[in-house]
Simulated assay, not measured.
Amino acid sequence: MLSFFSRARSLSSSTENNEESTTSNTKSSKIIIEEIDSETEITTTPTTTPQPTTETREDPSQTSTPKKQQAMEDTNKSPSSPSSAEKRYHTPRITVDVIRDLCSRQSLFQTPYLNDKLFLHHRGFRVIENLELYTELKALWLEGNAITKIENLGHLDKLRCLYLNQNLITTIENLENLVNLQTLNLSSNRITVVENLECCPQLETLNLGNNKISSIDSLSSLCKLNRLSVLDLSSNEIDDAGIVDILSQLPKLTVLYLKGNPFVGKTKNYRKTFISKLPHLTYLDDKPVSKDERRCVMAWAQGGHVAESEERRKIIEENESRHEREMNQWKEMQERALLKRAEEEKNGTMK
């Protein structure tokens, strides 16, 4: 019985302890919850936003230091426009030292008058200058620069070849003393009128391709070049097929380039027309003019397509006849060789 009562006491005491702990835990949890709620009330309480002060902050860009203001003024200042002389000499120049340096690189002579050729191409030069000492030049390359004017070449009276293609030249001028000039290349420039070339009586090759030539009246001076045999007028703006009447006055014209002009595509029977009116032409637009083609063209010019067809038939018959004649000659040569060999075998003299 005693043990039973002691167990009962211990159980009741443990129960009381559990109740006390539960109560204490409940109290502590209530305290924690109250603290959290108080914190939440504090955080959720609307705060009054401070009113903006009447002080205005200055824009830093407007309150820059004097140095910054000076720098901004210098930046905003527009550069003074250079004069025409400054523009002209802004790019690399043809100086005596530059020419000597180029001669050294190209294995040419350092003594100017010993050179008969000079390469000054693709250097960005704008002005032809300082060539007075190179009096023996026969060929001068100046292509691929930014030259705007033909000048300072009067002392080169022995010059035969002048290459000024791929520049910014607008006028053909100052060639009066180049009486021995035979080849002149002025392609890929801005030339609109062909002029001042009658002073070059020896001129044989003239390249004016890829320019701004549009009127056939601007080509009338070509008639004075009696020795001209090669002419390039390709990729211009010529829109009149009447140019053939001007070109027909060139007695030695053999090579002609006209492709890339508007009139070429508009002219009916363009190739036949030009071949028939230019009797010495051997090349037209990169394509040779054969003897058979000329025969057909001349027949077409006289009797139209019927005469041209008849001439083609004659050409075919002539070619077949010539081929047959050559074959017969070949067979006869073989027969003679066989007879000679048989005779040598019979006489025992065959080698």
Rank of each mutant, 00 (worst) to 15 (best):
R227G: 06
V230K: 15
D232V: 10
D232A: 14
L233S: 03
S234N: 13
N236I: 03
N236V: 05
I238D: 09
I238R: 05
D239N: 14
A241F: 14
A241H: 10
A241G: 12
G242P: 05
I246K: 07
I246E: 10
L250V: 05
P251M: 00
L253A: 04
Y257L: 14
L258H: 06
L258R: 04
P262Q: 06
P262K: 12
F263Y: 07
V264H: 06
V264G: 01
T267A: 02
T267I: 02
N269C: 12
K272W: 07
T273A: 15
T273I: 15
F274I: 09
F274V: 09
I275Y: 08
S276R: 11
K277H: 12
K277C: 13
L278S: 09
H280F: 08
L281H: 00
T282C: 04
T282R: 05
L284T: 01
D285Y: 05
P288S: 05
P288M: 03
V289S: 02
K291S: 10
K291N: 12
R294H: 03
R295P: 05
C296L: 15
C296Y: 12
C296A: 12
V297Q: 05
A299F: 03
A299R: 02
W300L: 08
Q302F: 10
V306Y: 06
V306I: 14
